[in-house]
Design a protein around this nucleic acid. Structure first.
Length: 753
RNA sequence: UCCGGCGUCGUCUAAAGGCAGGACAAGGGACUUUGAAUCCCUGAAUCAUGGUUCGAAUCCAUGCGCCGGAACCA
């Protein structure tokens, strides 16, 4: 209904999935959302849920909700239920696709035994500290503990006794035998199982050894035939281990892990630990405090699942570490709430006014529409009005600033849904504070016909009803609370909650728990469902209205300085190495190319081979360095489907102007795809440069004719589009045209026509 | 310091060698019985330096910056 994405989102993960589907690597897309049941879900999880369930929906696959519950000491059924509630509330049907890693414990254990049997894992009886010490540091390799030598038989026996409960916590662990010298610390014989004599909320006391994440996760994925295991960036280092585990176990499927950037929002915290601090320290009323970024909090705040999903779609998915401006979230919220919130009036901080020309005791009833014209929904309520009213204290000023459109001594203002009044007298109390205004009704327009611009909200003093209103603000004062290792709590916004005894129009008496309202000029509000359970009617503000007046008046929520752009750092380059200098001298190479070739013997070998057929070493080197890697991504020279001499032949053709550089690139791509020798590829694809001036002209004319709009832009002064037109001609010519001649021709036609 | 990842308007995100686009935020205007909504307009970016190319945000090199990694947590 509201702002769902129009077309399915495109992001790098979906591109990978498209490619996998097309190549046939994957037939059915299965994703998973794997929360650990040890805390509450927050808006960052919502991003992940929308991604995983959204992909499943979009590709006609499925998404498993899997509880990653392999740590008995922190997990609890309470969290399982809260998570389930949150996911369903977000609008995703988990159906019967609810899984528990703990259901796989037996199978996992079998796989662990088989790893031990094949020598890929061993039982280490060192202390935790010793293992840590032997792991080395990021710059120094680890060293084996004495137990790394243990035979499979011995380890297996120990592992079985571990399972049987013969040892106390910490006596032994099961470790993978991988590589203690790996530059990736995760690969330095990671621990797979530890002993924990602890009660698990699901498996009870059936186990006293529990597997660790890096073992559980890939295997759970494989057991469930997950096709794409999507996690956040901090697991990038775990992927190598993920792949190792899958390769070394006998599994029915081969899932792959991809990482995306988790959501960060300005003025809030997202980590479980910090959230827990807020709750435990009683800085908020609980996990569902409306100021919390938890789904429970947002739900109670009055944020709708639709708005959350629209937000997730809007922020996109990438690998950039990013912080989304909370203003974007608020915008999405307003967009959603605008269409579902009837408008009513409520005065937060009342100032009494008396209409001196209104007969005392007389009351009238106005019929006021719930919706503004542009929303255009039907429905209205009656609004009582009489001699004494309340208006917002902030809608009156004794000394109005320039541009003030509200009440002031002698000024006129329109009462929403009623009439225009003018302030005749100001009554002050003993302390000199304004205590009341005396006003008179006025005709709709001034004598000169100009309409009264300002409109304020009001409530009948006699018929208004008292109501508790809560105004929420961001929990933290700074954009990045707790940045640079400071304590986030120090940034806490002491005024993030204001409770007000407001006076509302009587129709609000019927407001149901969990209903949305717009209090005109104040914001979107939600009848707090948790308070309602206790029999209290509390209206909490979901988000204020945009207020361009306030922005003018107090343009100051101090904006923190943006990221500092790294300084231009032109440090002197390393001098050419001896080898590179020799190489450059021998073949007359550019310094740049020599530098690269000097460090890559396999490229040098290719160069030597190429030189047997092509004398232009400079050209060959340039192709070796600049073009080959771009088209032969990731793979080394060894996996090339052709030898250096073939590259030499290609460069030779280019050198002799038989083909253009564009054609040579196409040819190279074809050769890399194994389509044949340089000669074969050029012939098969008809890549020889055309010398036919007429053909060139025809391509140019056709392109110009087909792209009148682009031509118009060029003539309007956008010379950049010449490149675009050139590109189109080149494509039409399939690379056979000389770009410089095309450019000249293009310029000629464009300027003469 | 080693390994991995990432550098595009203030923010988020597009552009698969060819017109650097969109949204939020900002500024201005129109309209207005919400200083809302809506509509229009403006300003605003490819980390730096070299190289390859007719043409580079995109390919190559070097440098710089930011994030993550040495739990028997996930």
């Amino acid at each position: 209904m509201t702002s769902e994405p129009q077309s399915p989102a495109r992001d790098f993960i979906r591109e990978i999935i498209d490619a996998d589907l097309q190549s046939g690597r994957v037939r059915r897309v299965i994703t998973r959302f794997p929360p650990e049941p040890n805390g509450y879900l927050h808006i960052g999880h919502a991003k992940s849920i929308c991604l995983n369930f959204g992909i499943a929906e979009q590709y006609g696959g499925e998404c498993h909700l899997r509880f990653d519950d392999s740590n008995p000491t922190t997990e609890d059924q309470e969290y399982v239920e809260a998570i389930l509630r949150d996911v369903r509330w977000l609008g995703f049907d988990v159906g019967d696709r609810i899984f528990y890693a703990s259901d796989y414990f037996e199978r996992l254990y079998e796989l662990a035994e088989s790893l031990v049997e094949r020598g890929h894992a061993y039982v280490d009886s060192s202390s935790e500290e010793a293992i840590r010490a032997h792991r080395g540091t990021v710059t120094e390799a680890g060293t084996p503990t004495p137990h790394r030598q243990r035979s499979p038989e011995e380890s297996l026996a120990l592992l079985r006794r571990m399972r049987a409960g013969e040892f106390p916590d910490g006596a032994h662990v099961l470790r993978a035998r991988i590589d203690l010298a790996s530059p990736n610390m995760k690969m330095r014989d990671p621990v797979l199982y530890r002993i924990r004599h602890a009660h698990h909320y699901r498996t009870g006391d059936a186990w006293c050894i529990y597997p660790l994440y890096d073992f559980v996760h890939p295997l759970s994925d494989a057991l469930e035939s997950i096709s794409h295991s999507i996690c956040t960036l901090e697991f990038e280092n775990n992927r190598e281990l993920y792949d190792w585990v899958i390769e070394h176990c006998d599994l029915p499927a081969r899932p792959r892990q991809y990482e995306f950037a988790r959501l960060n929002l300005t003025y809030t915290v997202m980590s479980k630990r910090k959230l827990l601090e807020l709750v435990a320290g009683k800085h908020v009323s609980g996990w569902d405090d409306p100021r919390m970024p938890t789904l429970a909090g947002l739900r109670r705040r009055g944020v709708t699942p639709e708005a959350l999903r629209a937000f997730a779609a809007r922020i996109g998915v990438s690998k950039h570490n990013s912080v989304v401006d909370v203003a974007l979230f608020e915008h999405t919220l307003r967009e959603d709430l605008n269409l579902r919130s009837p408008r009513v009036m409520c005065v937060l901080e009342p100032l009494k006014i008396t209409l001196e020309d209104w007969e005392p005791g007389h009351e009238e009833t106005l019929d006021a529409p719930y919706w503004p014209a542009d929303v255009g929904k039907p429905g209205s309520r009656s609004l009582p009005i009489d001699r004494e009213l309340y208006i917002e204290r902030s809608d009156f000023s004794l000394t109005p600033p320039k541009g003030w459109r509200r009440l002031a001594p002698g000024a006129a203002v329109r009462l929403r849904h009623a009439f225009v009044i003018r302030c005749e007298r100001v009554v002050t109390d003993a302390d000199g504070n304004v205590s009341e205004l005396v006003c008179r009704r006025e005709p709709d327009a001034d004598a000169d016909g100009s309409k009264t611009m300002g409109t304020i909200h009001w409530v009948s003093a006699r018929r208004g009803v008292p109501l508790e209103v809560r105004l929420y603000d961001r929990l933290f004062e700074s954009e990045a609370p707790g940045a640079d290792d400071s304590d986030a709590l120090a940034d806490l916004n002491r005024e993030s909650l204001r409770r007000l005894d407001a006076i509302a129009e009587p129709s609000l008496l019927d407001a149901e728990a969990g209903s949305h309202w717009q209090l005109e000029r104040l914001g979107f509000f939600f009848v707090d469902p948790v308070e309602a359970e206790q029999g209290r009617r509390v209206l909490g503000r979901v988000v204020p209205l945009k207020d361009s007046w306030a922005k003018q008046t107090e343009p100051a929520r101090p904006r923190e300085p943006g990221r500092v752009k790294p300084a231009a750092a032109g440090r002197a380059r390393e001098p050419l190495s001896e080898a590179a200098r020799a190489l450059a001298a021998r073949h007359d190479l550019s310094e740049e190319d020599a530098r690269v070739l000097a460090e890559q013997p396999e490229l040098q070998a290719l160069l030597q081979e190429a030189l047997t057929v092509c004398q232009n070493a400079r050209s060959v080197a340039s192709w070796l360095v600049n073009e080959l890697p771009a088209r032969h991504r990731g793979a080394g020279a060894a996996s090339l489907p052709f030898r250096g001499d073939e590259l030499g032949r290609l460069v030779q053709m280019l050198d002799q102007s038989r083909i253009t550089a564009a054609a040579a690139k196409r040819a190279l791509a074809a050769m890399l795809a194994g389509e044949g020798t340089a000669e074969e590829v050029v012939r098969a694809r008809d890549l020889e440069q055309t010398s036919d001036e007429g053909a060139l002209g025809a391509w140019v004319d056709a392109t110009l004719a087909e792209n009148a709009d682009v031509v118009a832009r060029f003539r309007a002064g956008n010379e950049n589009v010449l490149g675009a037109l050139l590109g189109m001609v080149m494509r039409k010519a399939a690379g056979k045209a000389d770009p410089q001649r095309v450019r000249a021709l293009l310029g000629e036609r464009l300027r003469s026509g």
